[in-house]
C-alpha cells in the first residue's frame, strides 16, 4: 500500500510548566479550538490557561445517582410487594425505611461506576493510537517535558503561522506530525 502522508498537526515541546502555561494562554487567545496539552503531572491552573469549559462529568454522576436510587426502590417494591410478597417481622409489604440501605448503596454504586465510565468516555479513552506517538521527543512527556499540540483540523490552523506562534512562546522544539 502506498504510504499516504497527511499532516495531523504541530507539536511544541517546553522544558517547564510555566512556559507551557504562557503558551496555552497565547494559543487560547489566538482563538484555536482543536488543541491539547500534555504534562507528566497535573498542573494547577492549566485548565484556566487553556480556557477549558466545566466538565459534564458531575451531571453524569448526578443522573446516575438518581437512577440508582430509583432502580433500588423500584426493585425492592417489585420483589417484596408484587412478585413475591413475604411478611417480614410484621412490617408492611413495601416499607420505605427498610429500602433505604439498598437505595443508598445502589446510588453510590451507580454514581461511582458512571463517574469512572463517564470520565473514560469524555476523554475518548481507551485509545490505542494517537499521532503524538510518532514523535520520539514525546516519550519524555511522562518524565520531564511539557507538550502542546495544535491539530491541522483547527479552522485557524496555518502551518507556518502556527509554528511561528509556538516558537515565539519559547518552546525548545516544534515538529509537525503526520496522522
Amino acid at each position: 500500500m502506498a504510504e499516504q502522508t497527511k499532516l495531523w498537526g504541530v507539536l511544541a515541546e517546553f522544558d517547564n510548566p510555566l512556559k507551557l502555561m504562557k503558551a496555552s494562554e497565547a494559543v487560547r487567545d489566538a482563538g484555536y479550538t482543536k488543541w491539547d496539552t500534555y504534562t507528566p503531572y497535573p498542573v494547577h491552573g492549566l485548565e484556566k490557561a487553556m480556557g477549558l469549559k466545566d466538565s459534564w462529568l458531575p451531571f453524569i454522576t448526578l443522573g446516575a445517582g438518581i437512577t440508582g436510587t430509583a432502580v433500588a426502590i423500584l426493585m425492592q417494591w417489585w420483589m417484596n410487594a408484587v412478585d413475591y410478597p413475604i411478611n417480614i417481622s410484621g412490617k408492611p409489604m413495601w416499607s420505605l425505611p427498610a429500602n433505604i440501605p439498598v437505595a443508598f448503596e445502589l446510588t453510590v454504586l451507580f454514581a461511582a461506576l458512571s463517574t469512572f465510565g463517564g470520565m473514560m468516555f469524555l476523554n475518548d479513552l481507551p485509545k490505542f493510537y494517537h499521532p503524538t506517538f510518532r514523535s520520539k521527543a514525546f516519550k519524555r512527556v511522562t518524565t520531564d517535558r511539557f507538550f502542546l499540540a495544535i491539530e491541522a483540523a483547527d479552522p485557524r490552523f496555518d502551518q507556518a503561522r502556527t509554528e511561528e506562534l509556538l516558537r515565539s512562546m519559547h518552546c525548545t522544539d516544534v515538529q509537525s506530525l503526520e496522522d
Binding site: P97, A98, I100, P101
Partner: peptide, 9 residues
C-alpha cells in the same frame, strides 16, 4: 439510629 430501632420494634 432510626432504622435499627424501627426494625427491632
Amino acid at each position: 439510629q432510626f432504622m435499627l430501632i424501627w426494625y427491632g420494634n
